[in-house]
Amino acid sequence: MTRRLFILGLGFSGLEIARLAKAQGWAVAGTCTTADKASRLAAEGIESHLFDGTRSLDEPSTGEATHILCTIAPGATGDPAVAHCAPLLRRARWLGYLSTTGVYGDRDGGWVDEETPARPSLPRSIARLAAERAWQALALEAGIPLDIFRLPGIYGPGRSALDQVKAGTARRIDKPGQLFSRIHVADIAGTVLAALGRPHEAGAYNVADDLPAPTSEVVAFACELLGKPVPPLIPWAEIEPTMSAMARSFYAESRRVRNDRIKQALGVILRYPTYREGLTAIAAADPRPSQ
């Protein structure tokens, strides 16, 4: 039987997953929000359907998807896929949902794993936990295994500290005790495909690399790779009043994310176990000169 993966949301992570699945022999299709992007995806050999989260998909056009993954963030009224695509979801043999490690809330730099109780405080993380529960309820009712992939900060080609340094927007903010976990987009794809190809207990999986670190260290390493001067540290008390509410919210929480479960249960070997390997590979593959 042909394995058919349907991805709700062919964005940064969804498209990386689609490309890897296609390379591994899966029939892949998914959704995007504009006709222009649908044309670009078609040129790449990826079938896509328009879905803006406000109406149901044209179900016959989605084919007989055996596996369905959602990367779409919840909206003001909840999870759009559960709200508008439930009949499609209930026909799958496997469901996957990309969530966030933000559901653990602030841990003052402490470690969290999948057994850590969810304690979100930011509105977007509260909405993600509600979306997780909506997916869990649907999967339980339909009797379908569901994997929830909880992601920290995502980076990759075109979206990393290297791009910030090149654009002249990188800052090194000194907030003592502040740590972030992160994950290269290629390792998100690798983890999802590992779950699709290996028998395992369905559940929540943290998809993070091995080295939580302050953003200031990541920016310094990106500058070194590009041969740029490392910006001075800016004290948090000095920069915090000038930051947008969204930017400030990213520094409102600090935690380290354990990734043991993806290694033990899914056999994942991270391609980029720390930001150092990830940024080095991105810099080596980018022919554009730094400005």
Rank of each mutant, 00 (worst) to 15 (best):
Q24A: 05
A285V: 02
W94D: 04
Q178A: 11
G53S: 06
A139L: 11
R159L: 09
K228F: 15
I234F: 12
G168Q: 14
G158A: 07
H200Q: 03
R255H: 13
D260L: 10
R271Q: 07
W94Y: 04
G78W: 01
R271M: 01
D163R: 03
A222V: 01
D209N: 05
T66E: 02
A35N: 14
A131V: 15
E44P: 04
D58L: 03
K37T: 15
Y205P: 02
V185A: 07
G9Y: 04
A194D: 02
L98R: 08
Y275P: 08
A167F: 15
D52K: 12
R248F: 08
C223R: 00
Y155Q: 00
T242H: 12
L226G: 01
Y104A: 13
Y205C: 02
P145L: 14
D108Y: 09
G109Y: 01
L15Q: 09
S48A: 13
A83Q: 15
T77K: 13
H49V: 07
K175V: 06
T100R: 04
Q136R: 15
A189P: 00
G267S: 07
Y104C: 13
A265F: 00
A43Q: 13
I282N: 03
I72V: 09
G168F: 12
V185Q: 07
G105A: 13
R128K: 11
V268W: 00
L225K: 07
R271S: 03
E217H: 10
E59Q: 10
G96I: 05
V192W: 00
P287W: 14
M1E: 05
A194T: 05
D260N: 07
A130G: 11
F51V: 05
Q164S: 08
P287M: 14
E132R: 04
I234G: 12
L270N: 12
A130M: 10
D209Q: 04
L225F: 09
A29M: 01
A137L: 13
T33G: 15
D36N: 07
I68F: 07
E16T: 10
R172D: 02
L225I: 02
S99L: 01
Q136H: 12
A170Y: 06
E64P: 04
V165Y: 04
G53K: 09
L57P: 10
E132Q: 10
L122M: 09
T169R: 14
E59C: 03
A202N: 09
W135V: 13
L122D: 10
G30H: 00
H67S: 07
F12C: 06
L95A: 12
R124G: 01
T71G: 04
D260G: 06
A29P: 02
G168R: 15
V112R: 15
L138C: 04
F12G: 04
D58A: 08
S39D: 15
L122G: 05
P199D: 11
A83H: 11
P212R: 09
V219G: 03
I188A: 02
I173F: 12
S61H: 02
V103W: 14
L193S: 06
R133A: 03
